[in-house]
Simulated assay, not measured.
Amino acid sequence: MDRVKFNDALEMSRLVYGMWRLGDDADTSVDHIRNKISACLDQGITTMDQADIYGGYEAEEILGSALTPELRNQIEIVTKCDIVAPVGRYSNARVKYYDTSRAHILSSVDHSLRLMKIDHIDLLLIHRPDPLMDACETGAALDEVVASGKVRAVGVSNFRPWDWELLQASMKTPLVTNQIEISLLHHAPFANGDIAFHQKNGQPPMAWSPLGGGSLFEPKNAALRTALKTIGDDHGVDEAAVAVAWLLAHPARILPVLGTNNLDRIARIGDAAKIQIDRETWFDLYTHALGHEVA
């Protein structure tokens, strides 16, 4: 499994296991969680993607219940903060909102550390752009959690280039990544400047929902799925692996985040790294995704 270096303190596996559905599984036992992590490690997938809000603010604790010191030392943990929803520990909130204040960031980091029973977070992301963000306050708070040793590196999620630049201008610590939606069904970032911005600045983006939330396999996308299956059959892998390999083929060094609770599917996440997508094949799939040939 290829690895991506973000800074001197952090490198991650090219494929990332997403834990947003961890609490939705019928089995959240310690042994089952450990089996999921082991299935990832067997493929060289060492990076686990969390967020404080996942599972109604319970997914981090579910992960923490399964971690041993030995297991913790084999993985990198990504988590996110700033979404406040009226569930779990924020059940008294009147409305769902974003909070990028210093107090909220510091509190969220401490909650995450306690719930996951860890002494540092490898990568902390601001989960959503906050219209009320005071970039100076937010940036200083992110610098603070890195300086304290509680966080190894910081980044953002769902930011546009101007959001990134506003925050980065108020920070000493470099932002290292932006986790955005990228897939064959959400390919706008390849044309709207999002990926080009980060590619220009040497920041590998992370891709959430790289399979389009499962909609890739709906009947309306039958032609695209047939194209994926044809390529997959030639390589002995399924359509999902080909769709992820399409992202891996891009020179921006995209890190797809894949989440499933099925152990057999987890064990096949690494299949995407076995396929080499050439330029014509990449554009063939892109053409199917667009619904027409490129201009």
Rank of each mutant, 00 (worst) to 15 (best):
Asp271Arg: 06
Lys200Val: 02
Ile269Glu: 08
Lys200Trp: 04
Ile182Lys: 08
Leu132Asp: 14
Val257Asp: 01
Leu15Pro: 06
Lys80Thr: 02
Val257Pro: 02
Ala135Thr: 14
Ile277Leu: 09
Trp246Ala: 10
Gly202Phe: 00
Glu144Asp: 13
Ser183Ile: 02
Gly236Thr: 06
Ser91Leu: 04
Ala85Met: 10
Leu123Val: 07
Leu113His: 02
Gln74Ser: 15
Lys200Leu: 04
Glu70Asp: 14
His250Phe: 06
Ser38Glu: 08
Gln179Gly: 06
Leu255Asp: 11
Gln199Thr: 10
Asp24Ser: 15
Glu293Met: 15
Lys172Gln: 12
Ile37Thr: 06
Gln199Ala: 13
Ala241Gly: 09
Gly44Asn: 09
His120Cys: 06
Ala141Val: 06
Thr47Tyr: 08
Asp110Cys: 10
Asn261Trp: 10
Asp2Ala: 15
Ser215Pro: 08
Asn35Phe: 08
Gly291Phe: 09
Lys96Gly: 15
Ile126Tyr: 01
Arg253Phe: 12
Ala207Lys: 04
Asp194Lys: 08
Asp234Cys: 14
Ile277Gln: 08
Pro251Tyr: 04
Thr68Arg: 00
Ala51Thr: 10
Ala249Val: 06
Leu67Tyr: 00
Ile121Thr: 02
Asp194Ile: 06
Leu255Tyr: 15
Ala135His: 07
Tyr286Leu: 09
Glu70Gln: 12
Tyr98Ile: 03
His288Glu: 13
Arg102Ser: 05
Gly88Phe: 04
Gln168Ala: 06
Gly193Glu: 10
Leu290Glu: 10
Phe190Cys: 06
Val244Leu: 09
Phe283Val: 07
Ile277Val: 07
Leu125Ser: 06
Gly149Pro: 10
Lys150Tyr: 08
Ile182Glu: 03
Phe197Ile: 00
Pro86His: 05
Asn35His: 13
Leu167Ile: 04
Asp264Gly: 08
Thr177Lys: 07
Arg72Thr: 09
Leu115Ala: 13
Ser215Asp: 14
Asn73Cys: 14
Thr68Lys: 00
Arg34Thr: 05
Leu211Asn: 03
Ala272Gln: 10
Ile118Gln: 05
Lys117Met: 12
Leu125Cys: 04
Gln43Ala: 04
Pro174Tyr: 11
Ile231Tyr: 00
Gln199Cys: 03
Ala289Trp: 02
